[in-house]
Design a protein around this nucleic acid. Structure first.
Lengths: 166, 166
DNA sequence: TATTGTTATACTCTATAACTATA
DNA sequence: TATAGTTATAGAGTATAACAATA
């Protein structure tokens, strides 16, 4: 269910109009898809993510990288395994990500205090600074990407969404 | 911003507990992420998509394939280009998809009535039958995946989501 | 000159198997 | 015996460039 670009209903008979001149766009009937919560949730999240990716590029941060930094920031000493569980990333895929953030001196890996197999992840001062900035960027971009919603609507929306996945 | 699995806040001091025995799970503070509409929309859509993929496997249909069939069903003679626009798929990536559905005799490609460059896509009787079944599956699965919502809440949710991307 | 459909190809994301060192 | 972290690799999904046929 990839995101779509058009919306208006059209006659359900023979479609005789090719897209023609690109601009106005043909009116395709996607009304069934529009009745699906999943479809709408996906479209909405894609449209926010688009802005997210664009603005986070300012900090040279991908979405997952931002999530990692934010989690490490609020959970100093968190292990790779915990990050994997919280972000639903497979352990092998986190390795390169962590390594990249470490090369950029945004995080540090220190031996875990009680488990010698594990490694605790911590923010460096530079990492903490960048994370604080990035969280402000995220909060702002959210408001911009959902500017058609009132504060009350945004609150309601989040509650309803959490009812689905919690 | 990949979906996460944990939710409850935790002290923001040194994290001394590795995940340990897998079951109960460590309590990671993801409270900042939970304030983001984008994060919640993504988590919710992922949780619905999970059910979607699982149930559509019954019809041996991927999400995009279902979307294509549904669009062709409501827009007989739609062109590849129109499908690409409506589904936000790059033309080269639709080719294999269409070919696969054609091999399964679910769709037919006929010359476009007015544009000899284009090809109109149509459902075969078998394709129409499968699409009707799959749409019923989709509608049902939606209800199941969002069973914690009342009908009114579901309606509100869809309206709010559409306010974001429309 | 632009568009439709297509091939070939590259890049990113995600997933699996298997190893090591610790528990 | 199970878990944390890692390597190597396979597989999706998604992206770009370039082409022939037609507009």
């Amino acid at each position: 269910m990839p995101r779509a670009r058009t919306s208006k209903p059209a006659p359900s008979e023979e479609n005789t109009a090719p897209s023609g001149t690109t601009a106005p766009g043909p009116s395709i009937d996607a009304s069934f898809l529009h009745t699906l919560v999943g479809y709408n949730a996906r479209r909405a999240s894609m449209s926010i993510i688009e802005v997210f990716v664009e603005r986070m590029a300012t900090h040279d941060l991908k979405m997952v990288e931002f999530s990692v930094l934010s989690l490490v920031s609020h959970n100093p000493g968190i292990t790779s395994r915990q990050l994997c569980a919280a972000l639903d990333v497979m352990p092998p895929n986190l390795v390169g990500l962590i390594a990249a953030l470490e090369r950029r001196k945004l995080i540090e890996r220190r031996p875990h205090p009680t488990d010698r197999r594990a490694v605790g992840v911590h923010l460096t001062p530079a990492g903490a600074e960048l994370t604080a900035q990035a969280e402000r960027t995220a909060a702002q971009l959210e408001m911009d990407a959902t500017y058609r919603l009132t504060d009350a609507e945004r609150k309601t929306l989040i509650q309803l969404l959490q009812k689905i996945y919690n």
